[in-house]
């Protein structure tokens, strides 16, 4: 865990070459501090998902610099060799749908990441239970994903994103399938977790209900991120 969150400078992503090249990101600058939850908004095709994929080390940026905690992970090229390990250990993901592994129970869904990192099963499960308790869903620890409500599934997904204590969590429209009450609950949890674990959280959203909760918002337009100050209600 780091005290520096994530820092992005001049991040560019170009699809294709020559005349047909599409410049999805035209030099994005972004800074998210530990414990901070920022919103990432923008119309369809503005480059939100491309930015998220670059941050998630799923696609290769064309140019720019990314610093995760104290580590420069990209400087016009990847500076880490094992991107799978980077995603596993340094980046947490929360998706629009929870995408829990249907054949693993709640505990093992959360414990899977530490297990993949080589942590013994019992220790990984203990970490998972600790997080499930923090998210107040420990009573469903042995349940299968199909037995959970949408809100419960999303909380488990958040626990999975947090379990390896990554410096950054990328949340892709985490409230989309939820009603207002549950959506607000999820954002509240993300804020709590960000503070508790000093994690920088970037939330991509279209959800008008939750946009006012962000203190800072990055509005992406035509591949460029514009920082805006949100209404800043937050969840203090």
């Amino acid at each position: 865990m780091s005290g520096k969150g994530i820092h992005i400078e001049g991040l560019k992503k170009r699809y294709g070459e020559g005349d047909t090249a599409v410049h999805a990101l035209k030099g994005v600058d972004m800074q998210v501090a530990p414990g901070e939850v920022v919103g990432l908004i923008g119309p369809s095709g503005s480059g939100k998902s491309t930015l998220l994929k670059c941050l998630g080390a799923v696609i290769d940026p064309t140019a720019g610099r990314m610093v995760l905690g104290d580590e420069v992970i990209f400087d016009n090229d990847w500076k880490v060799h094992d991107l799978q390990a980077l995603r596993r250990d340094k980046i947490g993901f929360v998706f629009q749908a929870p995408y829990l592994i249907p054949f693993l129970d709640v505990t093992d869904n959360v414990a899977l990441l530490p297990m993949l990192a080589g942590i013994p099963n019992s220790k990984a499960r203990a970490k998972a239970l600790e997080l499930l308790t923090a998210l107040d869903i420990q009573h469903r620890a042995r349940a299968m994903p199909s037995q959970l409500s949408g809100g419960e599934q999303q909380r488990v997904a958040i626990a999975r994103g947090l379990v390896n204590r990554p410096p950054v969590i990328l949340a892709d429209e985490p409230t989309a399938p939820l009603d207002s009450e549950r959506a607000m609950a999820v954002i509240r949890i993300l804020n709590d977790m960000a503070r508790q674990f000093e994690t920088a959280i970037i939330v991509v959203t279209h959800d008008e209900k939750i946009i006012p909760t962000f203190k800072r918002i990055y509005h992406i337009r035509d591949g460029v991120a514009h920082e805006e100050t949100g209404e800043g209600r937050g969840f203090e």
Binding site: Q84, R87, F95, Y99, I101, L116
Partner: peptide, 16 residues
Amino acid sequence: IREIAVLKLIGTKNRT
């Protein structure tokens, strides 16, 4: 497919 994509995204090794 979706579960495999998630597994890969969260860092599961190809050999796993």
